[in-house]
Simulated scan of single mutants.
Amino acid sequence: MIQKIYTIESGCFNPYQNMGLEEYLMYQAGEDECILYLWQNERTVVIGRNQNAWKECRTKELEADGGYLARRLSGGGAVFHDLGNLNFTFLARRCNYD
């Protein structure tokens, strides 16, 4: 059972740093803890782990516009992140997932 909830807010807008921290935090939640991670990315297309980036997005246009392309650990479709949306992740041990 979750006894403690921690909130971490990223002050960084770099998708590679934000998603790297998200993966790191995934392994840090204790037996009775939940971590709420809040983050934002600048001009980023995020694709799922099984997607082909060259079929799912216009990589040349994204690069020319100064955008980022990032791959998340989970599956799912392509999404666009910018500073107009807030991303959140709840991280807890599997035994606490309900």
Rank of each mutant, 00 (worst) to 15 (best):
Y16W: 14
S74K: 03
R93M: 09
Q40W: 05
I47Q: 06
C34Q: 12
L73I: 09
T44P: 02
M19G: 02
S10K: 04
T7A: 13
A64C: 01
N50V: 10
N85F: 00
G30H: 01
W54N: 15
I47R: 02
N50W: 02
Q3W: 09
A92H: 04
R49C: 12
W54M: 10
Q17L: 15
Y97C: 13
L69V: 11
K60N: 12
A78M: 10
A29Y: 01
E42K: 08
G77M: 02
I35E: 01
L25E: 03
N87D: 09
K4D: 14
K4G: 00
N50S: 12
Y24D: 14
R93F: 05
T59D: 02
R94F: 11
E31S: 14
Y27K: 14
N41Q: 07
W54S: 12
G75A: 07
F90D: 02
Q28T: 09
Q40L: 08
L69D: 03
G67Y: 03
R49M: 06
L38A: 07
W39Y: 09
H81M: 06
G76V: 08
I35S: 06
S10E: 07
I2G: 09
I2F: 09
R72M: 04
W54T: 13
M1K: 09
Y27D: 15
L69A: 08
A92K: 00
W39H: 01
L86C: 11
G84N: 06
M26V: 08
A64K: 11
R43S: 12
Q28Y: 02
F88R: 00
L91K: 08
N18C: 08
N41R: 05
Q40S: 12
Y37S: 00
V46A: 14
E31I: 02
G48N: 05
G20D: 04
D82S: 05
Y37R: 00
F88I: 07
L21I: 04
G77H: 06
F90H: 06
L91Q: 04
Y24T: 11
R94M: 10
F13A: 12
N52L: 06
Y6W: 14
G67D: 01
R43L: 13
G76W: 05
L36R: 02
Y24W: 12
Y24R: 09
R58N: 15
Y37F: 15
L83N: 04
L38F: 11
L36S: 02
S74Y: 03
E63C: 10
Q40R: 15
Q28C: 13
G20K: 05
D82A: 03
N96C: 15
Q3T: 11
F80P: 01
I2D: 05
Y16N: 10
G67C: 09
E9P: 01
N50F: 14
H81W: 04
E56C: 13
C12Y: 02
A29M: 01
G67Q: 07
H81V: 02
Y68M: 04
I2C: 08
E22Y: 01
R43A: 14
A53M: 08
Q28I: 00
Y97T: 07
I5A: 13
A78T: 11
L38K: 00
Q17H: 14
P15Q: 03
E42C: 07
Y97F: 12
L21H: 07
